[in-house]
Simulated scan of single mutants.
Amino acid sequence: MQTVLHRWSDRRPVPWKNGGGITHDVASWPPGAGADDFHWRVSIADVDAPGPFSTFPGVDRIITLIEGGSMVLDLQNEGRQHTLTPGEPFAFSGDDTLACHLPEGPTRDLNVMTRRGVCSGDVSVHQVTDPLTLGGNSRRHLLVALSDAVADERTSQRTDEAWELDRLDVLEFSAAVQVRAGLVAVIRIW
Rank of each mutant, 00 (worst) to 15 (best):
M113I: 01
C119V: 04
F92W: 04
L142P: 00
A99E: 02
D152N: 07
R116I: 01
Q157T: 00
G135L: 12
H126K: 09
D169Q: 05
V123T: 09
P106G: 11
R167C: 08
V123S: 07
T97I: 13
D96M: 07
G135E: 13
T129L: 08
R154D: 04
A149K: 08
N111Q: 05
Q76T: 14
G121S: 08
R116K: 11
P131H: 09
D152E: 04
M113Y: 06
E78S: 11
T159D: 02
V112Q: 10
G136W: 14
P131G: 12
R158D: 00
D95S: 07
V125S: 09
R154P: 01
V177I: 15
L146C: 04
T97L: 11
G94S: 07
R80A: 14
E161G: 15
D166H: 14
Q178D: 03
D152S: 12
A175C: 01
T85P: 03
P103M: 11
H141A: 09
D122C: 12
R139T: 01
G94D: 03
G87I: 00
G94Q: 00
G79H: 08
D160A: 15
G117P: 02
L132K: 08
T155L: 15
T159Y: 07
C100W: 02
H141E: 01
H82L: 03
V125P: 05
P106L: 12
P131T: 12
R158C: 02
E78A: 14
E78F: 10
R116Y: 00
L143P: 03
